[in-house]
Design a protein around this nucleic acid. Structure first.
Length: 181
DNA sequence: CCCTGATTCGC
DNA sequence: GCGAATCAGG
């Protein structure tokens, strides 16, 4: 991925807003890692972390002198673009689902924390909002296809769980390695 | 363990 | 210039 003026601009903006490097990486998409974001931030000489409250904070000094081993590299980014629209979903259904969001939230949160799949609300395309996970589930060519639709959003088109799957292969690999150990 | 930003250095 | 690997810290 190339650091176009457009992407640099977005990076600068989000960094100024106080988003974390990983969050920015998620928003930028295109397989940008948080390390890439941080590296770019430094190269751009942008000011350090800016807490929302105004305090700078998070001073982390380091004096490493690491060797640096060969990097395996592991892209593999979904980069999904689902275009299939789903029928049904009238206002009544939408309203019912709206009312179900709150009680579901805690369950989703627990699922995310425990590393299990979030509770899918099985939303169709027209039911999705800025507050629902847009991770596609199932085969788009079947009637069973739907979107996760859960409400545990984390500044990305996906919920916390799916955002990890979509944009953070490094973390996934680390988690898998830790689990296997 | 999870996460964060900072740093180094091979590419 | 880029970013993975690695660090130190919360």
């Amino acid at each position: 991925m190339n650091w176009t003026d457009e992407r640099v601009e977005k990076l600068t903006k989000l960094w100024a807003e106080g988003l974390s490097a990983s969050q920015i990486a998620t928003q930028l998409g295109g397989g940008v890692s948080r390390n890439a974001v941080i590296g770019k931030v430094h190269r751009l000489c942008l000011p350090g972390r800016v807490k929302a409250g105004g305090a700078t904070s998070t001073p982390t000094r380091t004096a490493p002198k690491r060797p640096a081993a060969p990097a395996p590299r592991a892209p593999n980014y979904p980069a999904r673009t689902i275009t299939r629209t789903a029928p049904r979903a009238d206002d009544t259904v939408a309203l019912k689902q709206e009312m179900d969001i709150q009680p579901l939230e805690d369950k989703v949160e627990l699922a995310v924390v425990s590393g299990t799949l979030p509770t899918s609300r099985r939303l169709t395309l027209t039911d999705l909002t800025e507050r629902t996970c847009k991770w596609p589930v199932g085969d788009p060519m079947t009637d069973d296809f739907h979107f996760c639709g859960c409400d545990s959003m984390d500044s990305s088109p996906y919920c916390k769980y799916h955002a990890k799957l979509a944009y953070q292969p490094v973390n996934e690999r680390r988690r898998a390695a830790a689990t296997a150990r």
